[in-house]
Amino acid sequence: MSKIAAQLKKGVLEIIILSLLKKNRMYGYEIIQALEEISDGYYTLKEGSLYPVLYRLEDKGYITNEIVYEESKRAIPRKYYTLTKEGKQMTEEFIIEWERFSEVTNRIISR
């Protein structure tokens, strides 16, 4: 992966994760898998990239986590992440801004 691609991905990771959590609560590995699947392998997120973003979003109050103990072969609980009310609002704002950003940027690039 080129340095440019890495920087671009890093810049949009927050909005991507917030968008994923908009519909459902998700756990860490689920987020990694969903990103990989939806992006056809373009986003191959690793733990060292995922968790710092999740911590930042948690610290800002946009997401919250919930520990769930499930009756299964799992020995330890799952940690689900959910958007907070503030997070939902921020996600909407993010998406509106992103649409404007990408539209304007594409217009400039394609001139």
């Binding site: 860490g28 590995y29 733990e47 968790y51 609980p77």
Partner: peptide, 14 residues
């Protein structure tokens, strides 16, 4: 503490 906790969870999940 958070990282440690999440790495245990991720390892188990994977």
């Amino acid at each position: 503490r958070r990282i440690k906790e999440d790495l245990y969870i991720m390892l188990e999940e994977k």
